[in-house]
Nucleic acid binder design. Sequence first.
DNA 1: GTTCTCGGCCG
DNA 2: CGGCCGAGAAC
Length: 293
Amino acid sequence: MIMERKRTDCPALPPGWKKEEVIRKSGLSAGKSDVYYYSPSGKKFRSKPQLSRYLGNTVDLGSFDFRTGKMMPSKMQKNKQRLRIENLSLSKGKPDLNTALPIRQTASIFKQPVTKVVNHPNNKVKTDLQRASEQPRQLFWEKRLKGLRSSDVSEEVLKTMDLPKGLQSIGPDSSDATLLSAIASALHMSSAPITGQTSSAAEKNPAIWLNTSQPLCKAFTVTDEDIREQELKVRQGLCVCVLDSLSLSLSLSLLREQELKVRQARLSLEEALMADTLARAAESSRDPEGRAP
DNA sequence: GTTCTCGGCCG
DNA sequence: CGGCCGAGAAC
């Protein structure tokens, strides 16, 4: 009878990878065991370097213990004085099993390796989860778009939008185009209501007091008339292509404030109804026949 | 030829 | 001592 070889799943590796342990049954090293891994396709691996070579950047084997098949966070490689930039080039130096190479995560459909420097004393891992929303942004960046106009395929410059008169620009450039950029961008950056710059200080000295999460425009109030006008323009096809969507977004934003009010009203109504229901329930429990006393 | 198994080097 | 891999044995 042949000793059954167990290939067990290995949770520390991608799905489909199997681990096998074979006990040596003869020779001087009898009793010792060898560990093998099998890729989903069935290829056999008999060492960590071999595994690492194959998995490349897809899995970080730094804390992977080949014998047990588990991740052992405590067992990070002791830092020998390796004061060199990790060498990607052929045959010089050994592959770093500690970490997968960093991969650029943005702006390319193909993964691209990034130069990794591990010996810089000031290396720190950013833990700031707000990072995305707190990244520095250029003040008055809208100016860079000045003079750019969209055109259709026949090179004819598209008619720009007429913005509601209530919308007024703030800052070094007060053209409608800049204002439109500012508002359109704000709409795409966040789903919060767009209010414009509510602080009067921002109007006087925007370079200092600008609220960067709001567009470069004075605080405004949205009237029903504004909304109707915007929608009408969209229907009339006064704005096409990209501008269409911007206009639509603008209308939606203007609506957004109204929506908040409506939602508020609904909540109030719901509370009132609930209170009423409770009151009736209390009353009928006192008087099960439902008759007035 | 491929796969299995143990020896032995090297850190 | 254990990881890794060469190479002979086995198939």
